[in-house]
Design a protein around this nucleic acid. Structure first.
Length: 420
DNA sequence: TCTGGGGTCCTAGGACCC
DNA sequence: TCTGGGGTCCTAGGACCC
């Protein structure tokens, strides 16, 4: 923990990231229409049951288009809404380009999500005398060199910097230091506070808390009684109290790896479900090995066609990174959990990770293990060299199920944390 | 042909041990 | 037959984030 008083933290947030990135990519490919300037959105394909809005332009906001709503609902509100498909590899490239530019300014960068970073400039007064000038330079360089805009929030802790970057956008920077909390943060609706979501909001409204200021000035003991530790946390946030480090994200503090998918059709037989699970495990296993980790907890979850969600997890008493081991455990869990309902979504996740240096295996499995590991290694290297489609399991031929589901990212980095 | 996918953390209950 | 309490581990489910 550091004394906050002298810290300088930037939070950088790409404005409507997916949409901006799609827009600048289109312009670079010779299109003349800038979709940021018309009602537009990034959305999945309803035919394959991925039909939700992932990002929207500022003009689309005027039609009350919301992230997460169905394309169907969005088109009701705005029939002329211009919709583009998501391109996850593009987002990753843009995100990487952003981070490399930011690294020219400080090595202390925490990648908080694909489109958000924290930068720590503490103790760099000699290099940057004027942080406002610095923010201005960074935002303008990104705009000029990368073709999209960002918002920058500046404060002495991450929470305030993050709230700040949300206040003024697009293409802006703003400070939110402790002495500015009262004027700049307290008037905001309480749902603008980090960690106040769908479930907390009605509870706060019941307590007559509507603004961040209401929350900040509420009796802490009362709040703790109603909302437990979460209440204490958001009360601290409302008062600008937060002192976590800007920590470089890497696979050492990664907690788990998951892969899930909504299948274009309902899966209603065990064999097919197992194929989907195997396909998901291929990606999970590869990412696990890529990050040089082993896991000892496997979880399977699914969503029925009636949107009932459930999951099952099991601790395995050894560490593994073998696709075969993970998928076998996943099959077991699935078979125990599934009652035959038609499924629209299936997921696999592994956690309880440790580095694979001293991967402990049970003695009698030693031989089997070596064989699995050898197979995984060969398959990984072929896919690395020739692409993920270069080698697939015979099981998937003519099955209608993709042999590797989910994104396979070249660059392994921690996606998101729910804590700062 | 309405409803994605990737994460982290917290809580509560039951099993089990001393 | 009745009576405890504390600690840890495991699992399920929910909340939050982008």
């Amino acid at each position: 923990m550091k004394n906050n008083a002298n810290r300088v933290i930037f939070h950088i947030d790409v404005n409507s990231a997916y949409l901006s990135w799609a827009a600048s990519d289109r312009l670079q490919h010779g299109e003349t229409l800038d979709i940021r300037e018309i009602p537009s959105a990034v959305g999945g394909d309803p035919v394959s049951r991925h039909g939700i809005i992932l990002a929207k332009s500022i003009p689309a906001k005027k039609f009350k288009i919301q992230t997460g709503e169905t394309l169907y609902a969005a088109l009701q509100k705005c029939p002329d809404l211009f919709i583009v498909s998501p391109q996850y590899d593009l987002y990753m490239r843009c995100s990487n380009a952003l981070v490399s530019l930011l690294k020219e300014y400080t090595p202390d960068i925490q990648r908080f999500s694909v489109d958000e970073c924290f930068l720590d400039f503490t103790g760099m007064e000699n290099l940057y005398q004027d942080y406002l000038k610095l923010a201005y330079e960074i935002k303008d360089r990104i705009k000029k060199e990368l073709g999209f805009t960002v918002s920058i929030g500046i404060s002495n802790n991450k929470l305030l910097a993050k709230v700040a970057s949300d206040i003024k956008k697009p293409d802006a920077f703003i400070t939110l230091f402790p002495h500015e909390i009262k004027d700049k943060m307290w008037p905001l609706p309480v749902e603008d506070l980090f960690m106040v979501g769908r479930a907390t909001l009605p509870k706060l409204h019941n307590l007559n808390i509507f603004t961040i200021g209401d929350l900040a000035n509420y009796d802490l003991k009362l709040l703790k009684g109603k909302l437990k530790s979460h209440g204490v946390m958001i009360w601290n946030y409302a008062n600008g109290i937060e002192n976590s480090e800007v920590r470089k994200s890497n696979h050492i503090n990664m907690k788990g790896i998951g892969n899930s998918t909504t299948i274009p059709f309902d899966v209603d037989n065990r064999e097919e479900a197992h194929k989907v699970i195997l396909s998901l495990c291929e990606t999970v296993g590869m990412r696990l090995r890529n990050s040089q980790n082993c896991c000892s907890l496997v979880e399977v979850h699914f969503r029925t066609n009636e949107f009932y969600n459930c999951g099952r997890q099991r601790k395995i008493y050894y560490y593994t990174d073998s696709t075969k081991k993970i998928s076998e455990t996943a099959y077991e869990l699935f078979d125990e959990l599934w009652n035959g309902e038609p499924l629209r979504h299936i997921g696999v996740r592994v956690s309880e990770l440790c580095t694979n240096d001293f991967c402990q295996v049970t003695l009698f499995e030693e031989k089997d293990n070596a064989k699995n590991s050898a197979i995984d290694k060969v398959v990984d290297s072929i896919r690395m060299k020739f692409g993920s489609k270069a080698i697939i399991r015979g099981t998937f031929l003519n099955s209608g199920i993709k042999p590797l589901m989910g994104g396979v990212e070249e660059d392994d980095y921690q996606i998101m944390t729910s804590i700062l």
